[in-house]
Simulated scan of single mutants.
Amino acid sequence: MPKLISLPTYRDGRGSLTVVEKILPFEIKRIYYIYNCADLPRGGHRHKKAIQALICLKGSCAVDWNNGQAKGTVDLNQPDQVLIVLPEDYHVMRDFTPEAVLLVISSEYFAAEDYIDEDY
């Protein structure tokens, strides 16, 4: 089941600084980001090995998930929140606002064989 975690954030007159350090349950092997999204969903898969951390740096999007026993939706709209998606979590990202930038941090390098396209 995905887990939403608040990231340590330091605010003062200069702005906000959010830190991703010693909070992810995996070693980082891949980082990518999704932006300039059309009105089409992204994702639509689960993994054999990869754990992912999703942070909406700007704007917002919805993440639908299903782990075969439970399902739900998480709205990502704060850059100081990270959603941890486990390998068994089938996930679809949708309803991106026009300015949305979704950062994805993965425990694995890209491997087509790690993807499972079928939902439960």
Score class of each variant (00 low, 15 high):
E118M: 08
Y33V: 00
K71L: 04
G68F: 01
R30Q: 11
K71A: 11
E108R: 13
V92S: 10
T97I: 13
H91V: 08
D12K: 06
K71C: 09
N67I: 05
K29W: 04
D117W: 10
Q69H: 14
D64L: 12
S107P: 07
H91C: 14
T18G: 08
D119T: 11
Y33A: 01
C56K: 00
Y33P: 00
K58C: 12
R11K: 09
M93R: 08
K58L: 09
K71V: 03
H91L: 07
Y109G: 03
F110Y: 15
T18L: 07
G59Y: 04
K58P: 05
Y35P: 00
W65R: 02
P25E: 01
G44P: 00
E113D: 15
D89L: 07
Q81I: 05
Y90K: 05
G59Q: 09
I116A: 01
Q52D: 12
P87A: 03
N67F: 03
Q81S: 06
Q69Y: 12
S6T: 14
K3L: 15
V82F: 00
I31W: 03
C56V: 11
D12Q: 03
E118D: 13
I23Q: 13
I31F: 01
G59L: 09
I31L: 07
G15S: 09
S16T: 08
L4Q: 12
E27D: 11
V82Y: 00
L7D: 05
C37N: 08
I84D: 02
R42N: 00
A112R: 15
D114W: 06
P8S: 07
R14F: 13
P8M: 03
P25Q: 04
V74Q: 09
R46S: 14
V104K: 06
D39G: 13
S6L: 05
Y32M: 06
Y35A: 05
C37D: 03
D95S: 15
L17K: 05
Q52H: 09
F96C: 03
A38N: 11
F110H: 15
N77C: 09
K3R: 15
Q81D: 06
G15A: 10
I28V: 15
Y109V: 09
N77H: 08
S107G: 06
I51A: 01
H47L: 06
F96R: 07
A53G: 13
A112L: 10
P2L: 12
N36P: 00
D114E: 04
Q78P: 03
A50D: 04
I28M: 04
F110C: 07
K3H: 10
N67L: 09
Q81F: 05
L24M: 02
N67S: 03
D117S: 11
L86T: 12
E118L: 10
L4W: 10
L76H: 02
I5N: 01
L40K: 14
V85K: 04
D119H: 13
K49N: 11
T73D: 05
R94C: 07
I55V: 15
Y32P: 11
Y33Q: 02
F110G: 06
N36Q: 13
L86F: 15
Q69W: 09
D12R: 06
C37I: 04
S106W: 01
S106N: 07
K71R: 11
G15N: 10
T73G: 06
Q52M: 08
I116L: 14
L24R: 02
S107R: 05
P98F: 11
T97Q: 12
E99L: 07
I105Q: 01
D75L: 14
H47I: 09
A112K: 15
L24Q: 01
A38Q: 13
